[in-house]
Design a binder for these strands. Structure first.
Lengths: 149, 149
DNA sequence: CTGCTTGCAAATAGTTTGCACGTTC
DNA sequence: GAACGTGCAAACTATTTGCAAGCAG
């Protein structure tokens, strides 16, 4: 068994892609960092070690990695997308008040998924949508303390 | 019973808001038009009758209407938001291939909603998220004909 | 008349793209 | 050394905001 990074690099090469500094850097950050990071989050971290890596390269790299299935992204509702490794399929609960993200296992959506397929011929895409609502804390304080949205 | 438009105007006034031309126009389009329209869709239609109404006014109007609960919006995953009347709470299934939107009644999400509340303290927000996946047609033809995304 | 609304223009935020140069295999 | 990648700057899309003028109540 190898390091997760080495595994990802191997995936890259298997697809006939080159293992560049930028791609390694993006993968490192995704592997180390919190599980959900925006392109900008990633860029900020990378720029500490490799100041020359440009934001647009990060976008292109994320796009590439997503195409080969190494990572996934979710839209959190306010426009910004966050990326995460594609290894552990899960769904995202996003609080529309404080923006916190809760990950829940895919199985919770199994029966919904089945219903949608049977009744509507619709096939849920794994780990690619955010479910909006209120987290416990925000639900408790309701519209009194912080900003909605 | 009155026309839907009159009802909405009344809601406005009850909230101490003014019934302006722009607000009437936006409501008209939402009532007449397809059930899911983006700010830009709405602006385009309105500009035929009232060329002077500015896009930014539409955004402000949509925001206002949403605040008083007259309408809702959903993010369809690619950044653009669509708006619809708030009368009939439902969820949206969006095909990430062809972009089509299927509406499903809220009840289908009832058990999911309960599970999330019990296990995660998370309270699903009604009619405010899009579920991504593949519609029947796209699932059938898979990655062969059209563009993913 | 008085404040809520709007038009306009300019600013943002997030992401994408054209092009010439650089790097990996 | 050829093809793939990248830096940079500029374009884009969707949306927001400041401000002065306009209109509803």
């Amino acid at each position: 068994m190898n390091t997760p990074l080495e595994d990802k690099i191997r995936e890259l090469k298997h697809q006939g892609l080159k293992a560049t500094v930028a791609r390694r850097a993006v993968l490192e950050v995704l592997i180390e960092g919190p599980s959900h990071q925006s392109a900008d989050d990633i860029a900020t971290k990378i720029s500490q070690r490799y100041p020359e890596i440009h934001l647009s390269t990060i976008y292109r790299t994320l796009d590439t990695l997503e195409n080969i299935g190494s990572i996934d992204h979710v839209h959190l509702g306010h426009g910004r997308a966050v990326y995460h490794l594609g290894d552990d399929p899960h769904q995202h609960l996003v609080c529309d008040r404080c923006g916190s993200v809760i990950e829940v296992p895919n199985e919770i959506f199994a029966s919904l998924s089945k219903t949608l397929a049977n009744d509507y011929g619709f096939h849920l895409r794994r780990s690619h949508f955010a479910v909006l609502g209120r987290c416990q804390a925000c639900e408790a304080t309701d519209g009194s303390t912080a900003q909605p949205r």
